[in-house]
Structures are given as C-alpha cells and as structure tokens.
Amino acid sequence: MLELRLVQGGLLKKVLDSLKDLVNDANFDCSATGFSLQAMDSSHVALVALLLRSEGFEHYRCDRNLSLGMNLSNMAKMLKCAGNDDIVTIKADDAADSVTFMFESPNQDKIADFDMKLMDIDSEHLGIPEAEFQAIVRMPSAEFARICKDLSTIGDTVVISVTKEGVKFSTRGDIGTANIVCRHNTSVDKPEEATIIEMEETVSLTFALRYMNSFTKATPLANQVTISLSSDLPVVVEYKVAEMGHIRFYLAPKIEE
C-alpha cells in the first residue's frame, strides 16, 4: 500500500512539466526515503534524477518498496487537471495495475480522483559516482534559461567555460557568434539574484543546447540553478524542489574526435 499526500500539489505539476518532454516512460520508485525517479532520454545523452524526500509529504505511507511505471505525458495530463493550490495524494496498492491521483481543493469543497493505468518498464538503473567538480556555478534560474534560449537562436551547441573572469557561455552558427559572460556577484538585494562561482580549476565543456533548453523547463521550480562542471564528465544542472528534494539533469558533453 502506497499513500503519499503532498500539500503543495502544484510542485508535482511543475516537476512533471519539467520531465515530460525529456523522458517518455519511467519508473517512479517509492521507498522509506522518498519518491524518486531516474531515467534517460531515448538517445541516452541526458539523464534525470528526481528525489522528493518522504519528510516533505504531509503523509507518507509506503509499506514496501514499489516501482510504478508511468507514461510521463499521460501523468502530466492528469496532474494538469489539479489546481495549483490543490493537495495531491498518490495512491496505489501493492500489486496494482493502476495509480490514483486525488486532488483536493484547499478549502475541501472539491475532491477529484483520477486513475491512471501503470505500465511495465524495463529500465536500467545507473550508478552515479560522487564527483569532485572543477567548477560550480549558482545563478538565477531565469537568467540561465534566458541565456540558453538566446544562444539557441544562433547555434546548436554551447561552450561553457569557467575561469577567474566568470562563467562564459559561447555559441557559433551560420550567422555569427555569441559570448555571454556572467561574473561572480553577491552584492544583490535578494540572495536568489546572486551569481556564485566556485572554481577549483578552469574548465571548458561543449553541450547540445537542445537538451539545456529542455532542462530549463524546471525553471518555475526554483529561483536558482546550480551547474556543476568537470572535464570529461556530464554536467549536472540542478533545481531544488522546495525544501523536499531536487531534480538533477545530467548531460553528456560533446567530445573532440
């Protein structure tokens, strides 16, 4: 028996909106730790890892570890029917072939339940090693989204370079080139407007902008994004999910032949 009650149901809507274009089908894993997902896109270039810790739910009952195979675009369709302020409860029996999403309006005057068929998904779980990063950039998530969107009108790839000068996002295309440099800046009115660059070593990596733009669908979840870089490793683009967890997107770099 699984029963997870999330008061901030809107968070789950935002989570699904940030996943559904990247991954078609995925297993949600429920354990005492929390509600999690790990999945790659169909070309295995990007991987997403979601964790919503059990403490973040108002009620979290998970009698035994359960893996729920779901089509993410169908799940997003169902969650779209919930109000942004609704309380969302996810329910499933141990041997269930369906999952129930229950939506309650904040003043309890409207209660809806949506039942969605589950699916069997063969997914391979990858071990993500703990890495020491050469550079970690924290910046406003909207700024990062803007940069990815702007650069993708000019080129297909972005070179992200971190030096003492700051973090530089560069692209080139048929019409020309573009460079955007963001400097370390903590003298801001609000902490979420800060750009914080921690650099152990200079690092420069090339990535496909198409995937970066897909990751920025998570922008409504968090004011800040964390970009962690190391030579010859996938970049990690992380958005916090309130105080209860995170979405981490991993993107494999383009490598010189």
Partner: peptide
C-alpha cells in the same frame, strides 16, 4: 569536429 557522447559512457549499470 566534436561528437556527442552518451551518459552510459560515464555511468555504469548497477
């Protein structure tokens, strides 16, 4: 030119 690598090049199955 550069070639797109895949996640499975870096992370292995568990």
């Amino acid at each position: 030119g550069s070639k797109q690598s895949t996640i499975t090049r870096f992370f292995s199955k568990v």
